[in-house]
Computed example of a mutant assay.
Amino acid sequence: MFSFIWSLVPTSYILPGWLILDTNPLNCFLQGLVGACGINVLCSLMRVHLFLEEQSCKDKNENESSSKRKPRQQQHNKTGLSGTVHFFIVTGLLAVVGSRVAALVVLEFCLRAVSGWLSARQESKIFIQQLLVQSQFSLGCALTCSLHFLHEAASQRWLSLLLAAALSWFLSKQATRLKHHVMALYKLHSSQRYCGVCISLLTSGSDVLPALCRTMIITFGVAVVAAVSIINQHFLSATDALKFWTPLTICYTLLVVYMQEEQHRLPSSQVVLNSVVVRLGGLMVLMLTVGRWADVIHILICFLGEAICLIPTMDLLDAAS
């Protein structure tokens, strides 16, 4: 029904091509909503993990450094109206970004994650924590890209996306509730053995990060398959595909090497901001040569999305370091 109504809207000559969404607005909004919920779950669980790690350090009489991190972790903790506005801004940005650019963002992140993990060696835990914080907008793109691929031929696509959005919203609310509960009451409940949730986190809180890593691996594994399929749909022959994939692979391999060298001589926060500019800037140059103008506009939207996700969570990045 929604597809029929949207087909009657004369967008082809009213709106420019880069403003026309991949599917009807309802489907795009629901996909963006799922992506924003995934980002919120990731941030909430990362705050819980870092808070538990901080409390563990305090229990070992190493509270001098951890006590300096606690105010910074809670400083940018979005609540109330600001958190709602931030959530729906991210939803809107993920809804507008095209599936083609979202697929490229996913592939770039996976290449960077694998290369960084192989070179991290002894600092693997710190690298994983930093990578999870940096993956926020890429995670949103991975979820929207996967949903676009999995529901592409569905007859009642909006119903499936509505169910996915409802489940994502529920998980997001539960993760937010867990974060607030742990921040406010974990120290009291864990010491008095009063709350079942806090006691579970006290005994198995070290499993939060591995579980989060396994979930991210599965999510991005599905997204990589979806991304390759989505990108290959835009090529009519293997020659055209080769002309696209060859410069893309070379460009991002060089960028990954460059960013790893920068990471060893600059502060973590500055490295993150520099890497966003370098990654998306390189992708924009590539799209100017082998892409479309719609892709360039969507990459500019990705710049804004990365900034909106990373700037409010710089305290998480510093704590992960």
Score class of each variant (00 low, 15 high):
Leu33Cys: 15
Ala142Cys: 02
His148Asn: 15
Ile218Val: 15
Leu150His: 13
Phe2Asp: 10
Leu171Ile: 04
Gly32Thr: 09
Val41Cys: 06
Ala320Trp: 01
Gly38Pro: 11
Cys37Trp: 03
Phe149Tyr: 12
Val90Pro: 03
Trp18Asn: 05
Leu188Arg: 05
Thr84Asp: 06
Val222Asn: 08
Ala319Cys: 11
Tyr258Val: 06
Asn61Gly: 14
Ala142Trp: 01
Ile301Met: 13
Lys243Leu: 15
Leu280Gly: 04
Trp169Ile: 10
His151Phe: 03
Met259Pro: 02
Val105Glu: 04
Met314Ser: 09
Ser99Gly: 13
His76Ala: 15
Val48Phe: 00
Leu33Ser: 11
Leu202His: 11
Ser119Arg: 15
Phe88Lys: 03
Ile5Ser: 10
Thr313His: 06
Ser206Gly: 09
Ser146Gly: 07
Ser269Phe: 06
Asn63Leu: 04
Glu306Ser: 05
Lys243Ile: 15
Val277Ser: 03
Leu280Thr: 09
Val34Gly: 07
Gly38Arg: 08
Ala175Asp: 09
Thr239Lys: 12
Val197His: 05
Ile126Lys: 05
Asn63Pro: 13
Gly38Tyr: 01
Ser268Cys: 05
Val296Glu: 07
Gly83Val: 10
Tyr13Lys: 15
Ile250Asp: 15
Arg112Leu: 05
Asn24Ile: 11
Phe170Ser: 07
Leu104Thr: 06
Arg100Val: 06
Arg292Ala: 12
Ser135Asn: 11
Ala294Gly: 12
His298Asn: 12
Leu104Tyr: 00
Ala113His: 01
Leu248Phe: 07
Val208Tyr: 01
Val197Met: 09
Gln136Met: 10
Cys28Asp: 15
Leu52His: 00
Leu15Tyr: 09
Val271Asn: 14
Arg47Ile: 07
Val85His: 01
Ala294Phe: 03
Phe303Met: 03
Gly140Lys: 02
Phe88Leu: 10
Ser7Asp: 12
Cys198Met: 05
Tyr252Gln: 09
Arg292Phe: 07
Ser65Pro: 11
Thr203Gly: 08
Ile218Arg: 02
Met1Gln: 10
Glu64Pro: 13
Met183Val: 04
Lys243Asp: 12
His86Glu: 08
Trp293Gly: 05
His298Cys: 14
Leu26Asn: 07
Leu255Thr: 11
Leu52Lys: 05
Thr289Tyr: 07
Leu212Tyr: 00
Ser7His: 11
Leu171Ala: 13
Ala294Pro: 07
Lys173Gly: 12
Cys57Ile: 01
Leu132Tyr: 04
Ala165Trp: 00
Lys125Phe: 00
Ala113Thr: 04
Leu94Tyr: 00
Arg214Leu: 12
Leu15Met: 08
Pro16Gln: 12
Ser82Gly: 10
Leu15Gly: 06
Val208Arg: 07
Leu111Asn: 03
Gly116Val: 00
Ile199Cys: 02
Gln134Ile: 11
Ala36Ile: 08
Leu21His: 00
Leu266Gly: 07
Leu52Phe: 04
Asn24Val: 09
Gly35Leu: 02
Lys60Val: 13
Lys187Pro: 09
Val276Gly: 03
